[in-house]
Amino acid sequence: MTRPRTTDDARVETGRLSIRLVHEPIDVAEAAAFLADPRAGGLDLFIGTTRRWTGDAETLELSYECYAPMAVKEMRRLAEEAMARWPLVRACIRHRLGTVPPAEASVLIGVAAPHRAEAFEACRFLIDRLKRQAPIWKREAYADGRLEWVQGERPPDLPGLDTGS
């Protein structure tokens, strides 16, 4: 199976940026603590969770597969793009791999900025871009026994053709 090959494949840690792929529940308090910074006037956290019902279909759990070294590189690239577009003090991304039951978090985006407007905008940008670009795939396990890989609506953008949304 395609799991992160080494610890180094699964994370980036710089002073202002923290990106990790994790196989255990996402530690929200740890992410919020990383974002704490006296230069910030607002922290924005987005947490994506496993939804039990999609229409009439009941999801028992999601499983995430990942091209780990590239996912980390791509998430870093997006975070650096966000830091260039907005005056972010800090940013963090967590993505869980393997099985994620209903109501548990699969992804966390956190940003700290001097003012809330840029924090909201940068956070939205990062989750929207991650869902298009990061080479991570989810498989739905439905209550009726079906196992179904979810395919994104559009292929990822190639470098130089970024739409920015």
């Binding site: 994506g48 995430y64 990942c66 091209y67 590239m70 996912a71 993505h95 699969s106 992804v107 989750i127 991650l130 869902k131 298009r132 670009q133 990061a134 080479p135 991570i136 795939w137 989810k138 890989w149 979810v150 395919q151 994104g152 609506e153 559009r154 292929p155 990822p156």
Partner: peptide, 10 residues
């Protein structure tokens, strides 16, 4: 070379 189908993380 990785073959990337439309991704669905998050």
């Amino acid at each position: 070379v990785a073959l990337i189908t439309p991704v669905s993380g998050g």
